[in-house]
Computed example of a mutant assay.
Amino acid sequence: MRSLISNPRIRMASLLSALVVGMFGFGFALAPLYQLICGALGINSLGNASNQVSEETITRGGVDSSHRVTMEFDATVNAGAPFELRPLTRKLQLFPGQVMEMEYLVTNLSDQHAITQSVPSVTPWQAGEYLKKVECFCFAQQPLDAGESKRMRLRFSIDRNIPQEYKVITLSYTLMDTDRTQLKQASALEPRAEGS
């Protein structure tokens, strides 16, 4: 057994396999880590359902028609995930206090059932506290059957207290696969030294 471990090729193959498994693990841990860190720091925690605001609360103060904000929408998919995600509206304008609605389209390109999670981010990040979500697909995991396409709704508003300097805000979602079966399969393929 000692001769196997001292063999440079086997040692290198073991190290590379461990690195691949570690990278898969890190990729799957990104969504919960993101939410944990942002929650602890109090920044950009837009995917948390506890931040949901009722429409009545938003409309209670009326609409501020003196300040128009342009919202831009973007989407990315976590590297290697077999999905497509795109906003059906790329840009819209609204007044603070006005409730707007738009949709994203997600498609599962694989032949497997999947469970996804969308992680939001806002640019500039300081404007994130003024973005108020009434309803968002990011509040919960989204199951997708093989080949399924689904429209996912977002209802939101901009807080009336937003400073005038914020004229353009970009809301982006990163779609992640929460299924860990690929990680388990990669771990099962990892070479093991004899006798272990």
Rank of each mutant, 00 (worst) to 15 (best):
82 P>C: 07
9 R>C: 01
52 Q>Y: 01
130 Y>D: 07
160 R>I: 10
33 L>G: 05
40 A>Y: 13
111 D>T: 05
34 Y>K: 07
195 G>D: 06
87 P>N: 11
137 F>L: 10
156 F>T: 05
153 R>Q: 03
28 F>V: 06
10 I>L: 14
159 D>M: 02
180 R>D: 09
31 A>K: 03
101 E>I: 00
85 L>N: 09
139 F>V: 01
130 Y>H: 15
142 Q>P: 04
32 P>G: 02
57 T>S: 00
130 Y>L: 11
121 S>E: 11
112 Q>K: 15
4 L>W: 12
54 S>Q: 06
62 G>C: 08
143 P>Y: 03
87 P>G: 08
131 L>M: 14
98 Q>T: 01
45 S>V: 11
73 F>A: 02
163 P>E: 14
31 A>Y: 10
64 D>K: 14
183 L>Q: 10
148 E>L: 12
105 L>T: 08
94 L>P: 02
168 V>Q: 05
19 L>Y: 08
118 S>V: 01
133 K>H: 04
174 T>H: 09
128 G>M: 00
105 L>D: 00
120 P>Y: 09
130 Y>A: 11
145 D>M: 04
5 I>V: 12
142 Q>G: 07
141 Q>M: 09
172 S>Y: 08
97 G>T: 02
67 H>I: 04
103 E>L: 09
15 L>K: 05
81 A>D: 13
107 T>V: 10
29 A>P: 11
4 L>K: 13
90 R>D: 11
156 F>P: 07
83 F>G: 06
47 G>C: 00
117 Q>T: 12
159 D>T: 09
163 P>I: 13
61 G>F: 07
112 Q>N: 12
70 T>S: 12
44 N>D: 15
125 W>H: 04
131 L>V: 13
28 F>Q: 00
182 Q>I: 13
195 G>Y: 06
37 I>A: 00
179 D>E: 03
38 C>V: 06
124 P>S: 07
133 K>Q: 05
33 L>K: 02
138 C>N: 03
7 N>G: 10
182 Q>H: 13
84 E>N: 13
123 T>G: 01
47 G>R: 04
110 S>I: 09
140 A>K: 14
143 P>R: 04
81 A>R: 00
196 S>F: 15
115 I>A: 05
165 E>S: 14
31 A>C: 03
66 S>C: 09
176 M>W: 06
160 R>A: 07
184 K>F: 11
171 L>V: 10
175 L>R: 09
187 S>P: 00
11 R>V: 07
